[in-house]
Design a protein around this nucleic acid. Sequence first.
DNA 1: TATTTTTATATTGTCTGACCAATTAGCCGG
DNA 2: CCGGCTAATTGGTCAGACAATATAAAAATA
Lengths: 266, 266
Amino acid sequence: MKKPSATLPPTEGRLKGSAAHPLRSDPTLSQTPPYQNQGRLHGALAYRLGVDILKGVYQSGETLPNEIDSSSSLDISRSAYREAIRILAAKGMVESRPKTGTRVTERARWNLLDPEVLGWMFDTEPSQDFIKALFELRLITEPAAADLAAQRRTDADIASMRNSLDIMARETLQTEAGRKADREFHRTLIGATQNEALVSLSSSIEAAVAWTTRYKARHNALTRDPVPDHERVFDAIAAGDGSAARWCMESLIRMALQDTQKAAAH
Amino acid sequence: MKKPSATLPPTEGRLKGSAAHPLRSDPTLSQTPPYQNQGRLHGALAYRLGVDILKGVYQSGETLPNEIDSSSSLDISRSAYREAIRILAAKGMVESRPKTGTRVTERARWNLLDPEVLGWMFDTEPSQDFIKALFELRLITEPAAADLAAQRRTDADIASMRNSLDIMARETLQTEAGRKADREFHRTLIGATQNEALVSLSSSIEAAVAWTTRYKARHNALTRDPVPDHERVFDAIAAGDGSAARWCMESLIRMALQDTQKAAAH
DNA sequence: TATTTTTATATTGTCTGACCAATTAGCCGG
DNA sequence: CCGGCTAATTGGTCAGACAATATAAAAATA
């Protein structure tokens, strides 16, 4: 066995390592699906700063404390801090230049549709306006997507959607398996459009949908059975009837919006 | 004044600093509007890796060389390299875990609608399929946005759009001022929807539009005068006629698509 | 002996602290 | 009003310790 490596304990420094840093277990740390924040210090800090920016703790245009102060007051290294800032910058939320410092950009430049940002957003109980905006966007894109899907879907797509639908009927949205099947249904539907841009957009929106689902469950709003609505969309797509698919999808989303608003009024 | 800090010149190391690194001036470095890549090493590397991933030099699932090898072979520090990776990770393009290394995620998880990613995409002469997908998305969202804008626009919105339109008519799309007015026109239009999610989405798409504009100019396709089309959209919105605005916007985009395809056939 | 479980180990990202370089906003003097 | 300085801040570098984990080796079990 080797002894503690004879070399040198350089500054005598605190022998921490990084065992259990306060930041790691800091917030609720919304652990939705592949949230890769798992324990990385820079990720945790990016989360924290991101949420603070979204909440308005740091306003647009405001300069946040410099690297040295921030990192030391948070008790982390500059590198970890800088990596966190890089993440925020990649999402358009901050901008840093020498001498000026790092400042929060104007809200219009934030990538609100970034899945991660959307996740952060929902950890702050977003405003009704924002939820409304999101539903409006869904109401624009998803019916159109359903239309395209009806024209372009393959047999494999139909089989996959049929399967997801069966699981949903069996499990309901109360179980994780049921919700997963729901997501899978929508994902295949969008995939059937053969449109990469739509796929990318809706994978963002998926985060939002997942949240509203949980939101409704939390406020245990008596949500109607979603299967019949989905069934109608499916039938239209299987039949290749674009305009029917569009119409059914629109009504499906309107129902979801109604339920969500009902839950909000709780 | 203090002398060079008596301590120790640790390893005698190369006295480089970072005067003029090859990466900085490496590629064409698409300097579109507020591209904040300006000279930052990590930004330049992120750009390079990002483009390589989009081009397929690094395939999905592939593990790229480890930090030590990469940074040393690129002749940059590990910190700079890591910050670059953090940027890519924030855009969903890579995922890094201890022992496994950093690997390229599956294409469906890339944030293709991130303005920066979109910019990278266009530096690689994107596939016809992708351009088509993008126009399809515009065809879905922008007419709907025009509809909403017609219902919600304020007097200030109208004034701003009128002004942009005048500048466009005077300058044409050949001058930068003209193109800027074009962008401004669309931006105010989207802003008039009062929908944050739409704003965020279209600020992404703006990058794409800017590219196709340059693309058409490059292949000097005889593009028709865009002002009459814009004028019609404007009139409909000013009149508060949603469905007319929708229809005019749709035809405007179809024209742009036609021109782009004509340029592609060159 | 074959199979499963446990333990080592090598590899890799993570984090640290201290340092120097490049940039530039804002001040000061001409 | 302009041009050059100065101080403050991010950008970049380095060398090393730490933590996690996939894989291989060893041990226990069937």
